[in-house]
Design a protein around this nucleic acid. Structure first.
Length: 381
RNA sequence: GGGUGGAUACCAAAGUGGUUAAAUGGACUAGACUGUAAAUCUAGUGGCCAACGCCUUCGUAGGUUCGAAUCCUACUCCACCCA
C-alpha cells in the first residue's frame, strides 16, 4: 500500500495519521511541504532543508519548464539530482498559474497559453504537457493539470471549471499511464485536484468524477484564494466527506498555522504554503507562545490540542522594539537562527541594512516552526 | 576685493505669484502577504487634535501684493570663476 493509516478511520472529518510511501522514502502524515518553486526553498539549500528536518519539498512545473527548461532538466538527470535533494518532491502542475497569472494567459479547452513576463514569448501548457514535464522532472508526486478559478466565482463558471478540470484530469491520467507503459515506472504517484469554488455540490461532483478516474491521492485546490476563512472551512469539511478515506488528502496552498490545525482536525494529510518562506523574507517570524504561559491562560502546554491562533505569535523583526532585543526568537528552537544564537536585535539589524543573511535565518526559522507545528499535531492525534 | 550660481521638511531633490503642509526618491513608523510574476506591496511621516479643524513652515530680516517657497532690498552661509 502506498498510503497507510495508522488508525483505521471510517471516513469524513476526523484527524488522522498515516504514512505515505514514495520513490524517495516514506513520510509520516500529516506533513507540510516547504516550497521550492524554482528548485530551491528561497535562501536555503537542500542541505539546510535536510538539517531542518524537512521530509518533502514542493516544486513547480511551470517555473522549471520556463527556466532552465526541459533539456537541462533531462541532462541533469531529473530534479532530485539537479537540486541535490534526495528526499521526496511534489511538483505542482502549473494549474495555480492559471489563476495567479490570469492577466497573462489565454485559457482554452486544449490548455493554457502563458506569455512569458521576461521576453513575451508564448508557451502552451496542456494536461499532457504538464504531466510529461513532471515525468521528466521525476517528481515523486505528480499533480494533475487543473484550473484554479478566482474568488469570488459565479457558480456557472465554477461549474465549467470543474468539468474542464475533470476532463483535464482524465487527460492527465492518460498521459501518466502512457509514459509508464513506455518506460520503467519510476514510482511516481499522480494526484487529482478537486475544484468547485465554495459550492458544496460542485465540490462533491468534482470529487466523484476524479474518483471515477482514479488517483493515488486527492488534492483540494482553489481554496484560500480570498474567500472568508469560515467559508473555506465549510467547503473543506464537505469536500473531505466526498473523498475516500484510504487515500491521502492534500489541501493545496494552505495556510496560516491555525488553518493547518483546523484542516488536520478535519482530516487533511498534506499541506504546502508560501507563508513561512515569503513572510520570512518580508521580516515576519512565527514564534511559539507557551513561554508566556504564566501570564497568558490561552497558551497551552505542548501536549494540549492547539487551538485558534493563540498558540503562536508573529514578530515583525524590523519593528523598532527589536532594535535592542538581545534574545533569540525562541530559545527552544533549533533552527539556524535560534540554534545559532542570533538575537532578534541582530536579525533586526540584518534586515535594516539589507543583508541576505537575515532573510536566510528567518526563513530557516519559519520553516522549522511549520515543521514543528506538524510534529506537534502528529503528537496530538 | 569682484563675478556667477545656490540655500526647500531627517537626507537628497522638484516647485518660480493663488489648485502647496509643499511633487518624487531615500530614510523612518506601522501593516499586509495562503498550490511564489513577491528581498514585494500598502499606508503614514511639521505641530496640536479622537475627529471636524486650527496653528507654524521653504537661510535671516524687511518690503511689494487681496495673496509669496515663488517678486524686490539688505544681510548670513555654501560652491565655482576672475583678481
Amino acid at each position: 500500500m502506498t498510503f497507510t493509516l495508522h488508525r483505521s478511520q471510517s471516513s469524513g472529518s476526523s484527524p488522522r495519521r498515516g504514512s505515505l510511501k514514495t520513490a524517495h522514502g516514506a513520510i509520516e502524515t500529516p506533513f507540510f511541504m516547504p516550497i521550492a518553486t524554482k528548485g530551491a526553498v528561497k535562501t536555503l539549500s537542500s542541505a539546510d532543508m535536510a538539517g531542518l528536518g524537512a521530509g518533502i519539498l514542493l516544486s513547480n512545473t511551470y517555473h522549471l519548464y520556463m527556466r532552465p527548461g526541459l533539456e537541462i532538466m533531462q541532462k541533469a538527470g531529473g530534479l532530485h539530482r539537479f537540486m541535490n535533494w534526495s528526499g521526496p518532491i511534489l511538483t505542482d502542475s502549473g494549474g495555480y498559474q492559471v489563476f495567479s497569472l490570469s492577466k497573462m494567459r489565454t485559457l482554452s479547452e486544449q490548455g493554457v497559453e502563458f506569455q512569458s513576463p521576461w521576453d513575451g514569448s508564448k508557451h502552451m501548457l496542456t494536461p499532457e504537457k504538464s504531466i510529461a514535464i513532471q515525468q521528466t522532472l521525476g517528481s515523486d508526486i505528480v499533480m494533475a493539470f487543473d484550473e484554479c478559478p478566482p474568488y469570488p466565482c459565479e457558480k456557472k463558471y465554477a461549474h465549467e471549471a470543474v468539468e474542464r478540470t475533470t476532463r483535464w484530469a482524465q487527460r492527465s491520467q492518460e498521459q501518466f499511464q502512457q509514459k509508464i507503459a513506455d518506460q520503467p515506472n519510476r514510482g511516481q504517484l499522480l494526484f487529482g485536484i478537486v475544484q468547485g469554488s465554495v459550492y458544496a455540490d460542485l465540490r462533491a461532483q468534482s470529487a466523484r468524477e476524479l474518483q471515477a478516474i482514479g488517483f493515488d491521492g486527492y488534492a483540494i485546490g482553489g481554496l484560500a484564494v480570498g474567500e472568508p476563512t469560515e467559508s473555506m472551512y465549510e467547503t473543506l469539511a464537505s469536500t473531505l466527506e466526498e473523498l475516500p478515506a484510504d487515500k491521502p488528502r492534500y489541501l493545496m496552498g494552505v495556510g496560516k498555522p491555525e488553518n493547518i490545525v483546523q484542516a488536520v482536525r478535519l482530516g487533511v494529510d498534506m499541506f504546502d504554503c508560501v507563508i513561512p518562506s515569503r513572510n520570512a523574507r518580508h521580516g515576519l517570524a512565527y514564534v511559539w507562545r507557551e513561554k508566556n504561559a504564566a501570564s497568558d491562560s490561552a497558551a497551552a502546554p505542548k501536549s494540549a490540542p492547539l487551538s485558534g491562533a493563540a498558540f503562536y505569535e508573529t514578530v515583525h523583526i524590523t519593528n523598532e522594539k527589536n532594535k535592542t532585543a538581545f534574545t533569540v526568537l525562541d530559545s527552544a528552537c533549533g533552527c539556524l537562527a535560534c540554534g545559532g544564537g542570533y538575537t532578534r536585535a541582530y536579525l533586526h539589524h540584518l534586515f535594516r541594512v539589507g543583508e541576505a543573511l537575515g532573510q536566510r535565518l528567518l526563513t530557516a526559522h519559519n520553516i522549522k516552526f511549520y515543521l514543528d507545528l506538524m510534529t506537534r499535531l502528529k503528537g496530538a492525534i
